[in-house]
């Protein structure tokens, strides 16, 4: 179904935005898979252009406490990125990265080292995703160093919308992933403002001789 926000751009532009989501997701998945040395399964990115007030309805509330690896875009594009992991999955992910063997005592809190590990993971995945995006649009894109946030209920949506104007139309991309052979799963959510994507789309059209 076409959202009201999607009516504001051409089908070419919408297709181009959806394509960037696919390319970026592919790169981030390869990076995670290489780190874990496991296959990472992902859903097809759910990419929609919506108004800010519609974002809450598009994100599933966390029915348990979650850990978010949050980063804000700093240059080239405006928006936020969050990897959302149920706390139990965040602990298992740390165990996996630290190569804890079966039977060893497993993690059930996040200490400073674990937080640093999750930040590094965020940097790796965001870098993979955004490099693909930057190459696609031939635009330098920079993100802030990731931070770790913890929350539950519908509060995770607040992070996705940090410092986004209430009147903005936004491109919302969400992907579910799981790591094969483990109980690690999570969501990768990206939000970019249409205002900041417009110059990138114009460049793309020029490059393709459409403008």
């Amino acid at each position: 179904m076409v959202t009201k926000a999607e009516e504001a751009i051409s089908s070419f532009e919408l297709d181009a935005l959806k394509e960037t989501a696919n390319i970026g997701t592919g790169h981030a998945t390869i990076a995670l898979s290489a780190l874990m040395n496991r296959k990472v399964n992902i859903t097809i990115p759910n990419t929609t252009l919506v108004s800010v007030h519609e974002v809450g309805g598009k994100i599933t509330s966390a029915n348990e406490a979650v850990v978010g690896i949050y980063s804000k875009m700093r240059q080239g594009i405006a928006g936020n990125i969050v990897i959302i992991l149920p706390t139990s999955c965040a602990y298992r992910l740390i165990d996996f990265i630290n190569k804890k063997a079966e039977g060893e005592q497993k993690k059930d809190i996040l200490n400073k080292e674990d937080i640093a590990t999750l930040k590094k993971l965020g940097s790796l995945l965001y870098s993979a995703y955004l490099t693909a995006l930057a190459n696609f649009f031939e635009q330098n894109i920079v993100f802030q160093k990731p931070n770790i946030v913890s929350t539950f209920g519908d509060s995770i949506v607040d992070f996705i919308l940090v410092q986004i104007g209430e009147q903005e139309k936004v491109l919302l991309i969400s992907i579910n992933f799981d790591v094969e052979g483990t109980d690690i799963k999570g969501d990768f959510v990206l939000l970019f403002t249409l205002t900041s994507l417009s110059p990138l789309l114009e460049n793309l059209k020029k490059k393709m001789g459409m403008a």
Partner: peptide
């Protein structure tokens, strides 16, 4: 208190 339990035992 649930938030505290994410970081501390």
């Amino acid at each position: 208190l649930s938030t505290l339990l994410i970081y501390e035992d």
